[in-house]
């Protein structure tokens, strides 16, 4: 099927991209990998139409993976999911982020799609959002008049809706470093291992003092209109020592933190129950850590 008509623009500097995006207004879309833009456009899905497609692939300096002791991992908006998944640096500094990248779609999609594109698409089942939210990541937002840092926890507004202002572009992500007493994991539950969306996705970030949980951030994916923090589960967790009984309680608490829908992948009831199971598993996985070669 032929794609609807649009004009393709390929700016070669960020300034040029910003100027185009701001001048062309709501008829323009920013594209990096395009894997979440082109198929919906062909399907004439709601919201997929655009008059101008601004491909920022040719803007230099936006494809990077760096690590800074203070700020943590820095990932550019053109950095492909495959490169994040296979990055030694990401696997060493925060393997859960590499794991989340690997959960997305297929090898071919990850060779084209970017992590920033994955979050900007703002799907409720977005695989990279929960771990970014749990780890306290921040989106570097470039606006016409000013730049700002938008925490991932405040990034999502609804299904396919973000809190970016018109004309703003996300140029990268900053994921704070994991201290020695901190750990994180993301687990996706889906029927197929590839090319499938999550029934439930759970990310856990923990700060430990021996067996005691000092602080925790649990984020649930695919069980509400946006990825959501499981505040009740966190409350049940913080200040207590890890035990089977505690994890049981935390899992049950997480069920009250989500509002899943029934769809082709699972019923709302099943998703609710799987939130209970996978919240426990994500916490256990964070505590266990990732073995070398596991991802």
């Amino acid at each position: 099927m032929v794609l609807p008509k649009f004009e393709y623009l390929a700016p070669t500097t960020l300034d040029e991209a910003m100027q185009l995006y701001n001048e062309l207004g709501s008829g323009a879309k920013i594209m990096a990998g395009g894997t979440d833009i082109i198929p919906p456009m062909r399907d004439k899905a709601p919201g997929s139409k655009c008059d101008f497609l601004i491909d920022i692939k040719h803007v230099p300096g936006l494809d990077y993976i760096e690590y800074d002791e203070k700020q943590g991992l820095k990932i550019g908006c053109l950095t492909k999911l495959y490169d994040i998944q296979t990055s030694k640096l990401v696997r060493e500094k925060n393997p859960a982020v590499a794991q989340a990248a690997k959960y997305v779609a297929s090898t071919q999609i990850r060779h084209k799609g970017t992590m920033v594109g994955n979050i900007c698409n703002a799907s409720p089942s977005c695989d990279t959002a929960p771990i970014l939210i749990s780890c306290g990541a921040v989106a570097k937002v470039h606006g016409r008049d000013a730049d700002r840092d938008l925490p991932l926890g405040e990034f999502f507004k609804g299904v396919k809706k973000t809190n970016l202002e018109p004309g703003e572009i996300v140029t990268g992500l900053v994921i704070p470093p994991l201290a020695e007493d901190e750990c994180a994991a993301y687990i996706k539950f889906s029927v197929r291992k590839a090319m499938d969306l999550a029934i439930v996705g759970v990310a856990a970030w923990l700060k430990m003092d021996g067996k005691k949980v000092v602080d925790a951030r649990i984020t649930l994916g695919a069980v509400a209109i946006t990825p959501v923090r499981a505040y009740n589960a966190e409350k049940a967790l913080i200040g207590n020592e890890i035990s089977d009984e505690l994890l049981q309680k935390v899992g049950v608490a997480a069920m009250s933190d989500c509002k899943p829908i029934s769809d082709v992948r699972a019923s709302a009831e099943y998703r609710h129950d799987m939130v209970r199971v996978f919240t426990k598993r994500a916490i256990m996985k964070a505590l266990e850590g990732y073995k070398e070669g596991e991802i």
Partner: peptide
């Protein structure tokens, strides 16, 4: 034509990608 099946896989600069989800201009 949904980037799901992989029958259209080609390599661009050494990377396997779905050519159905790629614009010729890219």
């Amino acid at each position: 034509e949904e980037a799901e099946c992989g029958a259209c896989t080609v390599m661009i600069d050494g990377r396997p990608v779905n050519s159905c989800a790629t614009l010729a201009r890219e």
